[in-house]
Write a protein that binds this DNA or RNA. Structure first.
Lengths: 310, 310
DNA sequence: GTAATGTCTTTTATCGTGAAAAAACATTTT
DNA sequence: AAAATGTTTTTTCACGATAAAAGACATTAC
């Protein structure tokens, strides 16, 4: 089957949305930059749009003929990259229960169950290993370390160390730094979300990530910045997993963020430290409360073969 | 060509060295544990040893017939795993000069030059990416970030954060913890090396790694423990690269380690902090001094095609 | 009956291959 | 001549296949 053309399909869908806004599309290189793909892919997209009567295409002229209809779009599930598919599938198994620490992970079985090649699974596992949830035995299988309380505590320990340092660095940034404008914009977004919390509370997790990434970036340290990938990944699945009291949790977090932002703007190290610690403490609490120690295993019969008892 | 049998060859060589010490070899499972390989590999080894007249093998009886000769060993270079070969080759290019930040890394070219498949190179690059020296552009090539002064500073910043915390945790460990015996043994080894420094100064880097890993382990945090892989990797190549004043540097480091060990044994947090800081400071100095900012690029003609100007 | 050996099965490591996508080069248009 | 389009080449991504190595099961030895 070689390679799926999800890059093309995803870019095509995104390009369709552009059609609503304009009468004619920009040049090929410009479209490429806009969509984040090469000109080769742009031309494939344009070809199909011409074929399906969406545009008239003649050299530099790309006139929009009609608005896109739902059936013009490629199905959502065909636009995901293999890596995303594998990650989702793997995380579902990991969080579904029955995945206890010490179990073996079978590459071949995982590949079969997801319906992909072993190479993709191997590469995924290698990439995934930096999250500290799995470990490789030399010349042999992977071992699951488990999404345990210990894991959450180790993760938050580093997070707190890194964020306190980043926040201090942030507050020390010169007045003319561009980050202050970024922070102002994020503050506005926080206030907007706070006032619409009843309907939009599920938009918080995305805002949360952008806010913390901005702060971590102030460290100017690639290891700190990169570590946020681990946190983001865990929180992403954690948010999906634990919907209990989501609205209230997010409401509290927004207020903590606003206090945190105010402290940063004061540029007073002590205030920053206090606000940061307070928020990190409740973030840790939230994460820990979602990990019931001694999670019950599923009946053996329904247990997927991906994770195998050692 | 599929898979090389380097596991077998390496284990065979190690098993040859066992022959000197005993009259007869232990059971197959026991040998497997000893050599860190499966029984399948053990049996291959025994088969060959029988064929070449090294042992007489009949079921449980594995009698040594003669001492191994140099020609019995497999050549060293055939015992390396592909990952090691690729890493060495990659690092040589990286440190050889001409590899400037921003250059593109070409998987296919790298694979061709080393003489391996692209899959192995891809997997290596994914694993290697956690060291922070390269970065992947989505759907595209890898970008070299360069072994620069900035990299060294970011690395040491994290190292210092982690080691200070680990050292404090170490000193707080209960008296009956097994680590104190480990520390005592390391202290003895340090003293021995110090007295033989003239001839054995090059053995320090291995001792250095063991010492720091022991300390980091006291953090009981997988992210801290794993991060030492990054440090170890950089120092490993750094030691190979920068041989200037190696003996004197190591002599100083040993004394700092001994002071550090004494501080740990005192279990006085303030003393530990001071000794740790002092050592980390000179370690950073050493690393930084080996990175000449604005390293000169080689003439374009001799430049390997692995790294390509963007 | 425990622990070894002997045999068979499964999994991992690596390659070559081919399609998707990017990138490079050549040509045309404004 | 700068920037677009048209064309060709190269690289990345993903797969199935195969030998090495691990692991599981069956049998034998102590």
């Amino acid at each position: 089957m070689s390679k799926s053309n999800n890059v093309y399909k995803d870019a095509f869908n995104r390009c369709l949305r552009l059609l609503d806004e304009t009468q004619s599309l920009p040049s090929e290189p410009e479209l490429g930059t806009l969509l984040g793909v090469s000109r080769t892919t742009v031309r494939s997209i344009l070809s199909r749009m011409e074929e399906t009567g969406l545009i008239a295409w003649n050299k530099r002229n790309k006139t929009v003929l009609r608005a896109p209809r739902p059936e013009d779009f490629f199905p959502e599930e065909e636009t995901d990259s293999l890596a995303e598919i594998i990650e989702r599938s793997f995380m579902r198994r990991l969080l579904a229960g029955g995945a206890e620490a010490g179990m073996q992970i079978n590459e071949l079985e995982l590949a079969r169950e997801i319906g992909v090649g072993t190479t993709s699974v191997r590469e995924f596992l290698i990439r995934f290993s930096r999250f500290g949830l799995i470990e490789k035995r030399r010349n042999s299988h992977w071992v699951l370390k488990g999404f345990t309380r210990a894991f959450a505590l180790e993760l938050t320990e580093i997070r707190e160390m890194f964020e306190l340092r980043s926040a201090a660095a942030f507050a020390a940034l010169p007045h003319d730094s561009a980050v202050w404008a970024d922070l102002d914009r994020l503050e506005v977004e926080h206030r907007q979300l706070a006032s619409d919390i009843a309907t939009r509370f599920n938009e918080f997790s995305e805002l949360d990530e952008r806010f913390h990434r901005l702060i971590h970036r102030a460290s100017h340290n690639r290891f700190i910045v990169d570590f946020y990938d681990v946190i983001a990944m865990i929180f992403h699945y954690h948010y999906q997993w634990n919907k209990a009291e989501e609205r209230q949790r997010n409401e509290v977090a927004i207020q903590e963020h606003l206090a945190y932002i105010a402290a940063l703007k004061s540029r007073d190290p002590a205030k920053v430290d206090t606000a940061c610690r307070k928020h990190l403490k409740s973030a840790r609490q939230t994460l820990l409360s979602s990990i019931p120690e001694g999670r019950q295993a599923q009946p053996a019969g329904t247990l997927s073969a991906t994770f195998v008892r050692a």
